[in-house]
């Protein structure tokens, strides 16, 4: 389980980092896939990794995985919408800048998750 979290963190970070140069250049299909994935699930996946949506009792928590996926997608879509809308209303429309903000949010949440994991690990020792 811990390994799965680590791999997911790496994958999320990789998508977030790759999205920044791809917002300026690259093959259309690849740009659409990576930036689309970031907008669909990037910040939300980082958020879900940061949170500990663990059940109080495992028997009763069969909805945790669907809930985590749902929150990951909804939060990412909400962030994409709010960032894009804020840029429009502020008169600062720049899609690559929007992607950069989403990348920064994703990496920041992953950073908090890393810090939290270390703190928890240190506490356990």
């Amino acid at each position: 389980m811990a390994n799965e979290r680590i791999y997911l963190s790496y994958a999320t970070a990789a998508v977030a980092v790759a999205a920044v140069p791809l917002s300026f250049f690259g093959p259309g299909g690849l740009r659409l896939a990576v930036i689309g994935l970031l907008m669909l699930a990037g910040p939300g996946t980082a958020l879900v990794l940061l949170l500990r949506l663990d059940p109080p009792r495992s028997m009763q928590a069969t909805g945790v995985l669907p809930l985590s996926i749902a929150v990951a997608i909804a939060f990412s879509l909400a962030m994409s919408t709010l960032v894009a809308t804020a840029m429009i209303y502020a008169g600062l429309w720049s899609p690559p800048a929007g992607v950069f903000i989403l990348t920064a949010t994703t990496l920041a949440l992953l950073g908090f998750e890393l810090k939290r994991s270390r703190t928890t690990l240190a506490g356990a020792k």
């Binding site: 930036i35 894009a84 809308t85």
Partner: peptide, 17 residues
Amino acid sequence: WPGFFDALGMLSGATGV
């Protein structure tokens, strides 16, 4: 109520598609 279209526009603008 442009939120959804803003996000779609951002996707289009950032990918060049």
